[in-house]
Design a protein around this nucleic acid. Structure first.
Lengths: 225, 225, 225, 225
DNA sequence: GATGAATGAGTGTTCATTCAT
DNA sequence: TATGAATGAACACTCATTCAT
């Protein structure tokens, strides 16, 4: 519960901003920007309120720093990893989703997504930054995988502008589940990897049964015309 | 200055709570619970701050009332509509998604979803209420449609516990897009019906091209050209 | 000591700003802008801290309002009073000084002068406003009286640009005495009217004894040359 | 960035307190006690915040030290200078005023006067100290000059308790002008020596024109033209 | 009922002061 | 001795809530 007790008046200049950012991320994600008190952030980082303002000039700048810091250093060599990928596009898709989950979704960094969903209206400029730095690269990576599959004939022709969301939406939902409603739904448990497997399975093969004969028809009146 | 100024918005007495709830929904969705001031809610409803407290004992109760009121009256005859549905399960799925969008997603009521995503941590009991009143029925409706399809052989066997999210996640994302990040992404436009069509299409048929030979393409570099 | 007790939650919208301005003037004069707490101002006006911010958006605006309000309504018909003055210019001078003392110097309004002396550096724009609204008119009134005296031959020729300060400086000092050091000098008491009489007397007649014979010389070696 | 950066201001150790006092005087005069931050004082003196507290136990003590230090060493041989003065009392007066201006008024030390005017209410004991150490000796010097003039018949009989202020008030005003409102009055320029000359001139000779007839001009409208 | 002036607990931010280095 | 990171009491300002009208 209590953050690890530390000796008073410890000098840890280098470590402080990181600790504060981490604490702020946790609390902003959990309670939202407005409902988080800076004193609480400071306490979680093991420092006093005044110390926070030594490193961040205001609560709002702290928020921006949290976003920038969390997403800033993760999206560098993301695309390059896939340029040299050898394997089917289906495998690329599965790899992209599972790897993203393991590296981002399962970590605290995923809280940023929840944060942006919650606070975009209050921080439009940060939301736009998030768009450009996170969503756009993600969308383009997915799109390039899908385009590769279509080009090789592995995938059927797709409206890529929209098909990308067949990958993005499930991952987004998984994160929102984790950070928002999931903890409040004791009757439903989502295992992330099972979830991802299921989503990929459906995305790849669809839910329709392979129709050897045109006879497969549901009960009830046949479709008109 | 102006003689005999009339109050800006003349209201029927009966309508007050409803207008307050509507205004509160708008503002809570846009700015979050904590960042919304009750005075603003009152102003949007055309009444004074004091009047709001005549109808709702506190800001928190107002929030709860917003959630309860908005979701309360929509889920009554939802399931019954599908019990008498005649048509393929694929059609049911499409109908469920488009109808839900038109009746809920495209309306202000969809803001509740965004609200719950943002505020679940601060209102766990309301989040649980939302779970039970909105998400569980929705999940069960989807599940029943999928189960019907599987039972008739129209759909292949599925892990229904997870397959439901292939429907829920895209709709959830569409709402979050609409209420959060969408307005901050001027370079991307999502047309809801095209989006839904694309999601259904992928969900039904998958992205894999129909394979002329039943052998799955082997791993390895895709064919050149 | 305590401000007159008033019933709680009294509604006195019209009276509040004036009461607050009066309290603020007192405290700003006594302690300076920075050392005065807004809560103290509110308490002296018999209201709570929040009420102050109902009428003034910030402490700084309260300060400006104090200055504007205190000097705004006093300098209107000042000059006109002297245009129709019949009497010697010496009498005008005496009247100007004593009247100003009775109407301004002896009242709380004189605190504004002390305030501006103390805070001019922190509120340059207000200081300039004070210059233009208070000091310049005062200087011009004095100058016009002196000019009249010179024109009629009652006064000898003077460098009016500087002679005005023979009137202004003593009055300024009297105010500073009253508001600053006077209360801390228990061994010196200045009676304002005696003080003004003395200042006028010296200013009119000088301190030199009328020299009937050129013999009046002080002891000691006579001046060289 | 810059290799081997030297501290900006290399200081002799001995000089520290003096530099702090000097910096403090400047800033206290400019902004007032409360609005001056100790860190700023330290920075102006080229040392760190902590160092200031090595020499002065608190901001308040720093203030007192500034006052004591600035006025402490100036009033020693002031009176003695005049005891051996040979010349008219008018010359003594002129000399006292101009010398005081050149030695004190025109220097930073004059800021103390402005400081005391502003802060007397917050530091009554210091104000009393200032009274006793600065104002009283000054008053007594002036008084002794005037008394000498009266005794020799050079000056006419005067109420010395008040006549002293005919010297003090103009000098006080000149200082307040210099440190407060003067910089905010771009349309008025006061040349100190011209100002002092004018004040002395008026003080000695008065403003009344020498009357050809010994009869005082009667009250009533001044002669036309 | 309806209003909006008044309240005061709560929060972001500052800054004199301390103290480990 | 000198530093400047850390502290926390203090203060400006906000806003949900109350209540006299």
């Amino acid at each position: 519960m209590e953050p690890a007790a530390r000796p008073k008046r410890e000098r840890r200049k280098e470590a402080r901003p990181g600790e504060l950012l981490e604490a702020a991320l946790d609390l902003f994600v959990e309670k939202g920007f407005a409902a988080t008190r800076v004193e609480e952030v400071a306490a979680h980082a093991g420092v006093s309120k005044g110390t926070l303002f030594l490193y961040f000039p205001s609560k709002e700048e702290l928020f921006k720093a949290v976003v920038r810091d969390t997403i800033g250093n993760r999206l560098v060599e993301w695309n390059s990893e896939f340029e040299s990928f050898s394997g089917t596009s289906a495998e690329m898709l599965r790899h992209a989703m599972t790897a993203w989950w393991d590296r981002v979704g399962a970590t605290k960094a995923s809280g940023i997504t929840k944060l942006m969903m919650s606070e975009a209206g209050n921080f439009p400029e940060i939301a736009q930054f998030y768009q450009q730095e996170v969503m756009r690269p993600g969308r383009e990576l997915i799109r390039s995988i899908l385009a590769r599959g279509v080009a090789t004939g592995e995938f059927r022709p797709l409206n890529l502008d929209y098909a990308v969301f067949s990958v993005i939406a499930p991952m987004n939902f998984l994160i929102m589940w984790k950070h928002s409603i999931g903890p409040c739904a004791p009757d439903v448990t989502i295992d992330p990897h099972t979830y991802i497997d299921s989503q990929i399975d459906v995305m790849l093969h669809g839910v329709l049964a392979p129709s050897p004969s045109p006879a497969a028809r549901p009960p009830g009146p046949p479709p008109k015309k």
